[in-house]
Write a protein that binds this DNA or RNA. Structure first.
Lengths: 199, 199
DNA sequence: CTGAAATTTCAGAAACTTCTGAAATGACGA
DNA sequence: TCGTCATTTCAGAAGTTTCTGAAATTTCAG
């Protein structure tokens, strides 16, 4: 591997993390390299920079394409494919969230739905289904929130994030004024630990 | 494996998904089994139910404990350890989010911080650092939102979720009245696709 | 068409992970 | 203390993934 030290540390770290993120070391390294590279790179250059075989690069780029994490670029009078990453980090986040949902959540959601449609044979089945229903309901809440939020323009998404839990102040107001959600049993307490006055 | 068909399908599915979630098949299966089981189970019963070795169960339970995903129970006059999962799915979600953050986000955040402190040697370094800074900033926004939201009681968290992107209506109001965030360049458009009148 | 350059595929080697049975350790009552 | 039962550890077998170099395929200018 022949890279400036700073880039190399970053690339090696992404390689190590790759496993935890559901891709292998090479895929992580290539992604990191493309992310910091000022220009798109071709397969040969990647293989060279990371000191790995050309065929490994080819397979790993395929995987990155399956994840929608790389873009193909072309340079006039050059037949080679050049690769790069989207440069907007927020776009990268969206792509990543979408892909992980597709791989980690959707299959489970569809299995849960299928199993909940089955007619229970006995009490054990009934208990199991009740548990599956709880899980199903939670995942539905999350994915419908996600489907809603992902439509936001980046600027609004950032505003929403920086608001954080302070949104619940609006929720309290909403509770009182419009009676959205169920009426509260206890009197509303002021929230713990939301001191800095963003609003 | 000797389980009722419905439970078996669920257990097998979690086993398959395990790999995608950063644990192995056995860990996923054990978790699923404990999740649907009406009573806590001991290691022997788990090994029996899943048709795997006793020692494999022991190692996998260790891993589940490292993830804080199982609880230890004791039954009077029985020396064995019995295991179960928390039964509140929202608590499970919190634990999972926390653990994944710890494993998948925090190490990267600390590498980014470290690399951003280094003095760049040349333009390539300066460019790389600028890219790392963008990534760092995004991750910081996300984790600080997360730190804020995880303090919410479950009831409020659910209310926040069901509000989804409608929160941005408040953001618009906030924009106008309190000038939180930067002033808008374009006139505000009504949002596409947020019809059903929750508020 | 032909041939040179780029890319992909694929069988098997290397590396790594998972799983097991046997042995070691620990916990408890007598 | 001992014996019994439960649990953990661990070396290596079994299984899986990753990576390579060689061969096959694709692409395109001439």
């Amino acid at each position: 591997m022949n890279l400036p030290p700073l880039v190399q540390s970053f690339v090696l770290h992404f390689g190590e993390m790759g496993g935890r993120w559901g891709v292998n070391r090479t895929v992580g390294q290539i992604y990191a390299l493309l992310y910091v590279s000022p220009e798109p790179l071709c397969a040969e250059e990647i293989a060279e920079a990371l000191g790995i075989s050309r065929s490994n690069v080819s397979m790993s780029l395929r995987e990155l394409q399956a994840w929608n994490l790389v873009l193909l670029r072309h340079i006039p009078d050059d037949r080679r494919d050049y690769y790069t990453t989207p440069d907007d980090v927020w776009l990268i986040l969206r792509v990543l969230a979408e892909e992980r949902k597709k791989r980690e959540i959707d299959p489970t959601l569809s299995v849960l739905r299928e199993l909940l449609l089955q007619t229970p044979r006995d009490d054990a089945d009934r208990h199991a289904q009740a548990r599956l229903a709880e899980m199903h309901e939670m995942i539905e809440s999350l994915t419908s929130w996600y489907d809603d939020v992902k439509k936001l323009e980046t600027e609004r998404l950032m505003a929403l994030l920086s608001l954080g839990a302070k949104v619940t102040r609006f929720l309290e107001v909403k509770d009182r004024i419009t009676r959205f959600g169920r009426p509260r049993k206890e009197p509303l307490k002021t929230l713990p630990e939301t001191e800095e006055g963003g609003g």
